[in-house]
Design a protein around this nucleic acid. Structure first.
Lengths: 189, 189
DNA sequence: AATTTTAATTCAAGTTTAGAAGCATTGTTG
DNA sequence: CAACAATGCTTCTAAACTTGAATTAAAATT
């Protein structure tokens, strides 16, 4: 039943989009997505604001999912680290690059994640400074459980080939954005 | 070379074995990106990870821009609140909805922003509980300065009609995503 | 008038991030 | 090969940000 609600909401939003109408007359009684995008050009800041919001939303969702699974020892940020590690075995440096993290930051997370048994860490053979990092059994299980829960939402968003393509495009654009912003911070404007 | 950075970002996810030790050398040449993404499916988590990363990147950029402007009294988050307020005059509740913020959260920011003179706040006439909030002169100036700096990046990303449309699409998709995730947190999975 | 609802703030944790300094280990160079 | 530099990672401290529960004060409802 919650499901129907959700579905309905998505539908509504879409029709809203199709007419390219905007804001304040947003949608069904329940939701109110407020935007200041008037048909024309999306500015960087609007985009950034949206990204920020979406990110917040996802974090909340993740927190809830984790609650359901009874995961209380780590937070959303740590879980994201787990996902960033993925299925491979990598060094801390790789992890930093992959997630654009700060060194001290990751170290801090890793410490907890290792202590709590979500991650295996062994010193590299050929360079004993370097650590090789990978998900433990427990880590894998958590990720898998979350991925499963996540599929539900994915199906709400991507219902056909068209939407899948849209998603792909958006993904690609985000990466472009990441690149632009990364270069900007590195080499100045 | 820039290409490699991006490519790495794309591929790393599924790849089990990454040798991307060289992305730090990405040249200053800014974009020339064409990333062919193998028709692979972008999962929610990949998307979320990207959003998180991009968000981090933007925050950094903002921080730098602010540094250049000599703004040291507030942080990126507060600036985002300023942008969320925009040019209108609104209530705290409106602001909450617009930015998906938490009440206490915004209160905390507003307090600083008012104290530091970035925002004007007056009690509403017809409902004295409610505050009417808007950017002060100072607030407007800061936003304007940042917007100007920002245009540079915008031009790097959007160079023709096509790219503008892409951006629009991505923006729309993000909003859809926001909706799905918002509903999910509100009404459960 | 008494009660409930709404708008917003405060408070007291909590989490997450940033930056400087540290410790090994490895690489390099005179 | 000894000194020095660079690398890979960690630790520590302070700050920024976020959360949730409790609070105040003004409407709105009964």
């Amino acid at each position: 039943m919650t499901r129907e609600l959700l579905q309905a909401a998505v539908e509504v939003e879409e029709s809203d989009n199709n007419t390219l109408s905007n804001n304040n007359l947003a949608s069904a009684s329940v939701i109110t997505v407020v935007t200041e995008h008037d048909g024309g050009h999306v500015t960087h800041f609007e985009l950034a604001r949206t990204i920020e919001r979406v990110n917040r939303r996802f974090t909340d969702l993740l927190r809830i999912e984790m609650g359901k699974l009874g995961v209380g020892d780590i937070g959303p940020a740590q879980v994201m680290v787990l996902f960033t590690i993925g299925n491979g075995e990598l060094s801390v440096r790789d992890l930093l690059d992959k997630g654009h993290y700060l060194g001290s930051n990751v170290s801090y997370y890793l410490k907890q994640l290792v202590d709590l048994g979500y991650i295996d860490r062994v010193a590299s053979q050929r360079d004993r400074r370097s650590a090789r990092i990978s998900l433990s059994q427990k880590g894998h299980e958590l990720c898998q459980a979350l991925r499963t829960a996540d599929d539900t939402y994915h199906r709400l968003l991507v219902r056909d080939e068209d939407e899948s393509r849209e998603l792909d495009n958006a993904y690609r654009l985000l990466q472009k954005l990441e690149l632009v912003w990364t270069n900007a911070t590195r080499y100045g404007a």
